[in-house]
Design a protein around this nucleic acid. Structure first.
Lengths: 136, 136
DNA sequence: AATACTGTAATATGTATCTATTACAGTGAG
DNA sequence: CTCACTGTAATAGATACATATTACAGTATT
């Protein structure tokens, strides 16, 4: 899989990696038993430090999404698809809630919000669908 | 004015203060020439350090939204309403774009997004409208 | 003049994130 | 066995954010 890091969106890099692994599992882009890219591969693809990837993988292990195969790598755990399918919308919902809360607190109407949403949906649909490929 | 700080939304506190002053100006809650709460008042109301408020005010000065009256305080500048009315939707648009970009990159459909938006609009409408009052 | 406010600045401390680098033990293929 | 790969750990350094504390100069009120 390929990770797209946005260094300027306020979300820590290790957490962005975490989230994208979860989405990939929920999408079926990563299957149970399949190995995730090695920390060094992922780090070089994402132009990020190895420690940062290692932290993401560590937290994914603690959540039961990855399990370690000693000396070989990290693989998608059996329970991962269920966990990640459940997380899929929640990850977006939480971020969305935070934005809309600020909007409502500052007198922006639901109509204005819906207009902004439609506008951004149109813009993002035109862009390349950010190919979520598997790795080698 | 009263500031609502969310320590867990990834936006630095000084920037949250900055944004809320801009919204208040755009809304007409703060009028040209009116004084903004003193750094010490704002800090105690928001349960935040004085330096953090001072940083927000400093950046608002650099943007031409506040101007200093020596020994007396900071007041809303003449150009502030125009600047802030222009910023109003853009501040939300940028945060929204970031969230929707992540959603689209991870195969969440526009329909799913719109469902989430409507769901959150309904939830937030039920809550107290977060009174954006002027101070004493 | 004295007092109580303004903003502003300097200093030190703590925490979180990220980087760079080095090292080590386990695994598998040649 | 050797070599190249795994994850993992330890260390050190940089930066950003926020805190606590102290201090100072300007202004207005009494």
């Amino acid at each position: 899989m390929i990770c797209h890091i946005d260094p300027s969106n306020g979300i820590p890099i290790y957490e962005q990696i975490e989230r994208q692994v979860k989405f990939a599992v929920a999408n079926g882009s990563l299957l149970v038993g399949e190995r995730v890219p090695s920390v060094r591969d992922m780090a070089s693809q994402a132009a990020v430090n190895v420690n940062t990837v290692a932290r993401a993988y560590r937290e994914l292990q603690q959540q039961g999404i990855l399990h370690s195969i000693r000396g070989t790598g990290l693989a998608i755990a059996t329970d991962a698809p269920e966990i990640c399918r459940h997380s899929r919308l929640n990850l977006i919902r939480e971020r969305l809630r935070s934005v809309l809360q600020e909007a409502f607190q500052n007198q922006i109407s639901a109509d204005e919000i819906r207009t902004l949403v439609d506008e951004q949906c149109a813009l993002l649909n035109q862009q390349p669908p950010a190919s979520n490929q598997l790795n080698s």
